[in-house]
């Protein structure tokens, strides 16, 4: 078994999603290599080389790969696979991985598996279907390679620092040329990316999510304050995002982010199926809502039937009291 994990180039360190994908790859046994493509990838490659279990870091450094468009990256991945013949290729099930991996898979004539939550053996994986209302166990055919994306909330993102560093190798000129030679037809225009001092929603230990009952964007400040007190991240229901209370990248659910923190506090969230799909694997769920019949209480470990505008400030004070 030899596994290539494709990691997104953002910042100078591997993100929590890449570390989860590496931990999923470890379940397969065998050698693990990391592929990092972009412009100026050396710092992140150096970080990747210190992650325990990583045997090699492959870098593809070129301006063409700088914006991470699927067309170039898929061509690179295919060239790397043709030359190096991994048995498995994994990527986190982030918007990056979901955009890239199926494109590369089609070029390799492989049917990939999405959103793997459990590795049974090198050919057999478990993944959620129907928004997590059923779990499907699938088996790859004997002929490889096996391509899959990893549901990051299902695998730990913790990792120790290794005492030794893995080798960092630049891909060959031929592999790079395959990526540069693609007539992509795609031009990166711009981005509107939120920046926050808070931990990433996908890997935070504590997530506080607000629903439509928050009534306004201003009222979300209560949740930000509580999140800061707990070192957590803030999420939102689809209804809250659609109402314009917060940006789309805060949405938790089947079509937003899937989270599984130690503590999930759902505030004024009714608990539509598509929201539950994004948070029901959290270790401890708290629901605060005035309506005792709403479905969120069916998955909550602790339910509090109370007006959120009363409960949240008082929750902040009570936690503060014990912190002293």
């Amino acid at each position: 078994v030899t596994t290539l994990v494709v990691a997104e180039h953002k910042g100078d360190k591997l993100g929590a999603d890449a570390l989860s994908a590496i931990n999923a790859a470890k379940c397969l046994g065998g050698d693990i290599s990391i592929l990092l493509a972009g412009e100026g990838v050396l710092p992140i490659a150096q970080h990747a080389s210190t992650v325990p279990g990583v045997g090699k870091v492959l870098t593809a450094d070129d301006a063409v790969l700088g914006k991470g468009t699927a067309e170039s990256l898929a061509a690179l991945l295919v060239a790397v696979q043709r030359r190096r013949q991994y048995t498995h290729i994994a990527a986190p099930s982030s918007s990056f991985g979901r955009n890239l991996l199926p494109r590369a898979a089609a070029l390799l004539d492989v049917q990939p598996a999405s959103d793997v939550t459990e590795v049974i053996d090198a050919d057999t994986f478990v993944r959620p279907i129907y928004a997590g209302n059923a779990m499907q166990t699938i088996r790859f055919p004997a002929e490889g390679p096996r391509l899959f994306t990893v549901r990051t909330s299902a695998f730990p993102s913790e990792t120790a620092e290794a005492s030794t560093s893995a080798e960092i190798e630049a891909v060959s000129q031929e592999e790079l040329a395959a990526a540069k030679g693609v007539d992509t037809g795609s031009e990166w225009v711009g981005q509107d990316v939120s920046t926050s001092e808070r931990p990433e929603l996908g890997s935070a230990k504590v997530v506080i999510s607000g629903g439509r009952a928050l009534k306004s964007a201003e009222n979300f400040q209560m949740l930000y304050d509580l999140a800061d007190q707990l070192g957590g991240a803030v999420g939102a229901s689809r209804a809250a995002v659609d109402a314009g209370f917060c940006p789309n990248d805060m949405q938790v659910g089947q079509t937003g982010k899937v989270v599984a923190p130690d503590l999930y506090i759902a505030v004024g969230v009714s608990g539509a199926i598509q929201h539950l799909a994004g948070m029901k694997d959290s270790k401890c769920i708290v629901a605060i809502n005035t309506d005792p019949d709403c479905p969120i209480f069916q998955v909550a470990d602790y339910g509090l039937v109370m007006d959120l505008f009363e409960a949240i400030p008082s929750l902040g004070k009570e936690i503060q009291k014990h912190a002293k």
């Binding site: 468009t69 990056f96 795609s186 990166w188 981005q191 509107d192 990316v193 939120s194 990248d249």
Partner: peptide, 12 residues
């Protein structure tokens, strides 16, 4: 809609 927010592409 991407993980961090929004991204815009121009496609042929």
């Amino acid at each position: 809609e991407v993980d961090g927010g929004l991204e815009t592409l121009r496609l042929r």
